[in-house]
Design a protein around this nucleic acid. Structure first.
Length: 1012
RNA sequence: GCCCCGGUGGUGGAAUUGGUAGACACGCAGGACUUAAAAUCCUGUGUCUUCGCGGACGUACGGGUUCAAGUCCCGUCUGGGGUACCA
């Protein structure tokens, strides 16, 4: 019987669905294991072959863990709110819900064909009101919470109100609250608080809420009509669509993720994530320790506070720089500098992110005309304004130490400001006119009064102590991490569950949820720039009269807690019951792309910590172990094409032409191509040495011919860089008029010829593979469906794993896939050996039609093969090395084929080992062996060391580290005995050449090395 | 610039703790079967050298540690990813 993967695969996919084979049980005796794939956004393009890479890996682990006796949760769902569906809705007027549903249906169809063991009963969609009800609910919890620095966790806002009522507020909380807007708060007493009106109370509390409405600079994208988070911008343009982004001051909903900065940083140490990913998060959080320091403005009551990480260099300050947006800019500017400063500030503020990035090396700035006093020397220090100082970081002002900071250095050089050296580094005290600054935190302090002679580290401590003692500032930690902008001026997202009464935002009550996304007539902003939700019917108001919030939540809202929803996907009264979240705990294995490093993976950690603080869940981190699967690139197949010179092509439109094929300058063939004005596609195999020339038949003159190499054949029709011409033409009749030429002959009008006009069977037309991004544009997109159709899902699964290590990026090509399919066929034949011949199929011999598996006792060799395989596969899965396990299966089947082994005692356990990788064929053969239950219920075979023990060891014998020959010796021999035997060996004598070895090293059961 | 990860045959890659470098697979060459093709099977395949036995070289490059280095250390080159006036 033939291995008929199509029938087998569709049968088993139906069986699994009908029997809910992979439904997870919520409890029981088995230990739990939670394997999760990163939430896919169902895009209109469907899945290409790169997407399922991680899903296959996680599916293997899920199936393996089931065999190992775990209760496995392996769910899948859709992050189904998002920009592309909305952009499509704007263009076509079709509701994004419809597009989204179609895309999901397509995704599902593709996923099903690959045979994943997802528990589809738990599917979630973020755009489903049953789901986003709880996203809104969590938002309300965050809104109703503040971060208590003394308990170091989030608490209900009521506890803060209690504090205000009893003690009031003395402004001392401000350095513990890291949001951008609480700075301006005035102190108040408990009595005063009680007397405040509701608006005032609301405004004050807004400074503490973890979800808050605040005015801040945002990344505004006019083309998309919305704000974007930092991680949604790449190179100064929007990640989706590539539109320019500008800075804009806006009132916005934000999340106070900065309150969690330290915990997000500390938590990384407890996670088994890749170092590079953790490093990316650390950089993004960007902790820096330093000190604040006040500089008194001369002739004014004001002082400028700066943040510095180098208090040791305070004696090297030669000027102070303010960000253009700094609040003191106006008051510090002297009359004579006013015009220049105003012009500069206006220009700097209007520069978009993109422009700032583009001329990063362009140094700009302006002098205010004012001075501060140096806090220690009392000398006057000029105040400058420069856009290299960011308003949003630290205090928006820096003390410039050009000798020891490269940015200050360039600024000083550009404007001719003094450079004062205070750390003797590599230049040893003679820097002044040397190129560049000395930024290293090493060396002894000079020219620095009480710091002189100290090492940088000690000088820092002493400087901070002195600054604090003088009341000029204090030690401080700063984070680069910004609060996350939460509002989006878009339609296709979760409505923010807030309404406004007398200009005060109120959260909805839980029983009012979900706040369902209203219908609108258009998905565009209104004429006066309000978000699309402002188009909702006039009746869409809270209690019929109060406006709802018009912005919606960002894409990351729904994905920040979805892993919890899978635990209890249909719960109507809670986001997930405590009982079930306690049972399922953390995700044990999370697989997804590294592009989520500073977005999703930071937000999901933030929300997890928040929910834990309020006692809703027991875990502090969402995923214990995380693997980033590598990107799959595309392989394009370039065709070598000859065309008429582009400038002259018009001229030859109606002239009858032919092409001349030349070999080593000599003409070997002429082919008539008629007088059509359409392009004649003339292609030459990439490995050919022939030359092609167009020829004008009417004027009997050659036509200027060019080589063109931009055309890409659809990769679907190319295997090992050989184009399947017949398939290609059948699918793309546009190319039917082409001429394809190789050294063996040519193809034209659906027939093959050699150069003497004889019809031939085929030619091997070669294309040139180049690695590019997988994209429709390059004709190199490969769909998993096509591969499943042609080779089967099991082959696809194995091949994706066989390509290389999961975490490594690699281009897709289908070259090796036949080897993987060959392996499955070979496995199949072990079960269907012809009773007469057995093993290797002789040429022309049919495989047996009946299953032919015996109950004979396996030999020692067969057992060794099996147990070696069990051992390796187990080790490989445990360390997520899937490519090597495929190799090991191949070795196993090769050995069993050589041994002509068709014994049940060997083949049965082998099937269980293989079933996580190639589940369909394993199920089918398992059933044929007489089992009535799914193979997924079988226990993973135990590996028995006893079968692997060899009687003999093949010792490589080396001389000075170079292996010369091997000796098979009994494993029981001691190292001394081995040495004696090797010394006595006649081959040894040859290499020793009569000399006595200086030293002999024998590593037991490993190697012998003689030093001569 | 800074941070992270890589560099092994014609190709994808293997070598888990320093112990026979190139497993497994593709491709290629030759052969078997076939009217032919497909499918399948067998043999060979790192480079150089030799008729052959064999020998020499070989994991980006240059050094080092070691009886022994793809693996550890130092320096250089190079590819990919992240990030960037964050004081």
């Amino acid at each position: 019987m033939e291995y008929n993967f199509k029938e087998i695969e569709s049968n088993w996919q139906k069986y699994w669905a009908a029997n809910k084979t992979f439904a997870a049980k919520d409890g029981g005796d088995k230990p739990k294991y939670y394997v999760l794939d990163m939430f896919p956004y169902p895009s209109g393009a469907g899945l290409h072959v790169g997407h399922p890479l991680g899903y296959i890996a996680s599916d293997i682990v899920a199936r393996y863990k089931r065999h190992k006796g775990f209760n496995v949760l392996h769910p899948m769902g859709y992050d189904s709110f998002g920009l592309p569906a909305e952009q499509y809705a704007i263009q076509t007027g079709q509701h994004p819900k419809i597009t989204t549903e179609q895309n999901i249906a397509r995704y599902r169809e593709q996923l099903d064909k690959i045979g994943f063991s997802f528990d589809w009963d738990r599917e979630v969609r973020t755009s489903n009101p049953e789901y986003y009800k709880w996203t809104q609910w969590i938002f309300i919890q965050i809104f109703n919470s503040w971060y208590n620095k003394s308990t170091n966790k989030a608490e209900p806002i009521e506890t803060l109100i209690k504090v205000f009522e009893t003690k009031g507020f003395n402004c001392k909380l401000d350095d513990t609250l890291t949001g951008d807007i609480e700075k301006d708060l005035e102190p108040f007493t408990g009595e005063e608080w009680k007397a405040f009106d509701e608006k005032k109370k609301s405004d004050i509390l807004m400074n503490f809420r973890l979800a808050y409405l605040g005015e801040s600079f945002v990344n505004w994208c006019p083309q998309l009509g919305t704000v974007l988070a930092n991680d949604e911008i790449k190179d100064g343009v929007s990640e989706r669509g590539g539109y320019p982004v500008e800075r804009k001051l806006m009132k916005q909903w934000s999340m106070r993720i900065t309150a969690y900065a330290q915990r997000l940083l500390d938590g990384l140490d407890t996670l088994d994530w890749t170092e590079s990913l953790k490093e990316a998060q650390r950089n993004w959080i960007g902790k820096s320790e330093g000190t604040s320091l006040k500089f008194k403005v001369q002739g004014s009551e004001n002082s400028i506070e700066v943040f510095t990480t180098r208090p040791d260099t305070v004696f090297g300050v030669s000027f102070v720089t303010l960000a253009p947006e700094h609040e003191l800019v106006e008051s510090l500017t002297t009359t004579e500098n006013k015009a220049a400063v105003e012009a500069y500030v206006t220009q700097a503020k209007n520069r978009s992110e993109r422009e700032r990035q583009a001329d990063i090396n362009k140094i700009t700035g302006v002098f205010t005309g004012s001075y501060v006093e140096h806090p220690f020397t009392g000398k006057q220090v000029p105040i400058w304004i420069g856009d290299y100082v960011l308003a949003g970081y630290g205090t928006g002002a820096v003390m410039a130490v050009p000798a020891h900071d490269s940015r200050d250095y360039s600024f000083a050089k550009h404007f001719g400001l003094p450079i004062l050296e205070v750390v003797a580094g590599s230049t040893n005290g003679t820097l002044s006119e040397v190129e560049g600054s000395y930024d290293a935190k090493e060396g002894k302090l000079i020219n620095s009064d009480f710091l002189n002679g100290l090492e940088v580290k000690d000088a820092m401590k002493k400087a901070i102590a002195e600054i604090e003692a003088k009341g000029l500032g204090k030690g401080k930690v700063n984070f680069r991490l910004r609060d996350a902008v939460f509002g989006r001026q878009r339609y296709w997202g979760e409505p923010i569950p807030v309404y406004y009464k007398n200009d005060i935002p109120y959260a909805l009550n839980e029983n009012e949820l979900p706040l369902v996304l209203p219908e609108v007539d258009k998905y565009l902003p209104t004429e006066d720039g309000e978000p699309p939700l402002a188009r909702a019917a006039a009746s869409w108001k809270h209690e019929g009269k109060y406006d709802y919030e018009h912005s919606t939540m960002p894409g990351w809202a729904g994905s920040s807690w979805y892993f919890l929803r899978y635990m209890d996907a249909t719960n109507g009264s809670e986001f997930a019951s405590k009982k079930l979240s306690d049972y399922w705990q953390q995700v044990d294995l999370y697989i997804g792309g590294s592009e989520h490093a500073t977005g999703h993976l930071l937000y999901v950690r933030f929300w997890t910590k928040f929910l834990k603080d309020l006692g809703y869940i027991a875990i502090d981190e969402p995923a214990k172990k995380l693997i980033n699967q590598g990107m799959i690139g595309g392989t394009s197949e370039l065709m070598k094409q000859f065309i008429i010179n582009r400038e002259e092509i018009e001229k030859y439109n109606s002239i009858s032409k032919e092409i001349i094929i030349k070999k080593e300058g000599k003409e070997i063939k002429r082919l008539d191509i008629g007088n059509g004005s359409e392009h004649c596609h003339v292609y030459l195999s990439i490995d050919s040495g022939l030359d092609i020339e167009f020829f004008d038949k009417e004027n009997k003159s050659p036509i200027k011919t060019e080589l063109f190499q931009e055309n890409r054949a659809k990769v679907k029709y190319v295997m090992n860089s050989v184009l399947n011409i017949d398939e290609w033409i059948a699918d793309e009749p546009y190319y039917a008029g082409s001429i394809l030429i190789t050294d063996e002959g040519y193809w034209t009008k659906h027939e093959y010829f050699d150069f003497t006009e004889n019809k031939i069977q085929n030619i091997s037309f070669k294309t040139k593979p180049v690695v590019e991004k997988m994209s429709k544009r390059w004709n190199n997109v490969v769909n998993p469906d096509d591969i499943c159709e042609k080779f089967g899902a099991d082959t696809l699964r194995l091949y994706e794993m066989f390509l290389g290590p999961l975490e490594q990026s690699k281009p897709w090509n289908t070259n090796g896939i036949t080897g993987v399919q060959g392996f499955l066929k070979k496995l199949w034949r072990l079960f269907y050996m012809s009773p007469s011949g057995g093993g290797a199929q002789r040429a022309g011999e049919d495989s047996s039609n009946a299953l032919n598996v015996t109950n004979d006792e396996p030999t020692k060799g067969e057992l060794k093969t099996l147990h070696k395989t069990i051992k390796k596969i187990t080790e490989d899965i445990e360390r997520f090395s899937f490519n090597t396990s495929i190799s090991n299966f191949m070795i196993c089947v090769n050995e069993l084929t050589d041994a002509k082994c068709n014994k049940r005692a060997i083949l049965e356990p082998l099937l269980v080992c293989l079933s996580p990788y190639a589940p369909h064929i394993a199920e089918e053969l398992w059933k044929q062996l007489g089992h009535t239950e799914s193979i997924s219920t079988a226990a993973f075979p135990d590996f028995n060391e006893a079968y692997l023990v060899d009687d003999n060891v093949n010792y490589p014998v080396s001389f000075n580290g170079k292996v010369k020959f091997t000796l098979e010796l009994a494993a029981t021999l001691t190292t001394q005995e081995v040495e004696a035997i090797v010394r006595a060996n006649e081959q040894t004598a040859k290499y020793l050449d009569g000399k006595e070895p200086k030293k002999v090293i024998v590593v037991h059961k490993k190697i012998v090395n003689m030093v001569v």
